[in-house]
Design a protein around this nucleic acid. Structure first.
Lengths: 206, 206
DNA sequence: CAACGATATGAGCAAAGCTCCGCTTTTTTT
DNA sequence: AAAAAAAGCGGAGCTTTGCTCATATCGTTG
């Protein structure tokens, strides 16, 4: 269903070809983020977005099939930022168990930073986007865990590990946990990942 | 904010006193569930609910402050069913590590059963209800983990453990994982819980 | 049975998502 | 460079939907 190489437009809408239209899309998304920050989710409506962006409502619906798609694209871009930090991430050469920990820490910090910068936006995205819509964004991180050196996990184990980590991070953001950016929280997530991966790869059930 | 002893009515709405009104609330909630199952989230609107329930729209708003509150109450009742199974749960007498595992298994199975019975409803609830709205429902399970015999966890560790488990279950339901009711999935969650709790209580960071 | 609170109703209001079609700008064609 | 075609833009207004409110009926109590 999802295309792989266009940058911007979801679903059966027009693909922008001129620079003008790409700029319009950017303006709309930026306005949407601002509306969200200023008026909260309650005031997040298409008219307000159009007005703030200085474009007609029609222009929004030229590029987005519906209002929700705006959120989806915002999420995609937000997560791309976080994902980018993961790839830039100074992957350790020494083939120890280190990759996990480093990736988790990087991911968590990038996540935390975005939350600080755009709290309401991240909240809305985590709250409104479906699992599938967020999944693609996290696929990168998941792949990282899979390709870890010494611990081959099957698909169920990989699922459990990635969703458990995501669930803890998600909850910390949504519930506004004061320890989101703390050292201990990072440590706990790393510990969780490490202990489970180790036991799971050896299938130490009971 | 939340009251503690009324059974039915959220927020600043009228508390029903006559049997008739209690029945009305039940009828509305059942109709809401049916509308959700039949027409999906798209068709989940107040008019449809009222029509299916055979009551006026006004009657809905007599007992629910807004549409979302209907979902919240549905969630509360759904979770109460799951929670009930937890308390009935044959808690093991021998003070081993068993409580966790048993609770997790019971919880997961009850969860899975409700999902089979009312798939769309559970999906909508997990998708639409906020963390805080679901939190109360899971408080019981969390308390169970806290009062486990030999492993004292601090609040961050408890948060990580409970949200990680919930995150994995939630994702399995939302993403329609085929292994939701499988033995291995249960085993993995128990393993996750056991390995992390053990290491965390001894603070084995790195 | 009178009177009053509790319960029920549904027309209709207000707000918001979204369409439609005419207008303007940019690109392509000849 | 003019004309034609394509792409982009706008906003009045249609439609849906959440929700209110004035009115009517039911149930209970003295």
């Amino acid at each position: 269903m999802a295309s792989m190489n266009e940058q911007v437009v979801p679903e059966q809408r027009v693909i922008p070809r001129q620079q003008r239209s790409l700029a319009t899309v950017d303006v709309i998304l930026e306005a949407a983020a601002q509306v969200l920050e200023i008026t909260g989710e309650a005031g997040f409506n298409t008219n307000a977005i159009a007005e703030r962006a200085g474009v007609g409502i029609g222009s929004i619906y030229r590029y987005f099939p519906d209002k929700h798609a705006i959120l989806v694209e915002m999420g995609r871009r937000e997560m791309a930022r976080v994902g980018a930090e993961l790839t830039i991430d100074p992957g350790p050469k020494a083939g120890s168990l280190a990759p996990d920990r480093q990736a988790i820490r990087t991911f968590l910090r990038a996540f935390g930073e975005r939350t600080r910068a755009r709290r309401v936006v991240v909240l809305a995205l985590l709250g409104q986007l479906s699992a599938g819509e967020l999944q693609a964004a996290f696929a990168q991180a998941e792949a990282g865990m899979a390709s870890r050196s010494g611990t081959p996990l099957d698909r169920i184990q990989l699922f459990v590990l990635s969703r458990a980590l995501l669930g803890a991070m998600r909850a910390a953001v949504l519930e506004d946990a004061d320890f989101l950016l703390s050292q201990q929280f990072e440590d706990e997530l790393v510990l969780l990942s490490r202990t489970y991966a180790s036991a799971a790869s050896r299938r130490l059930y009971d």
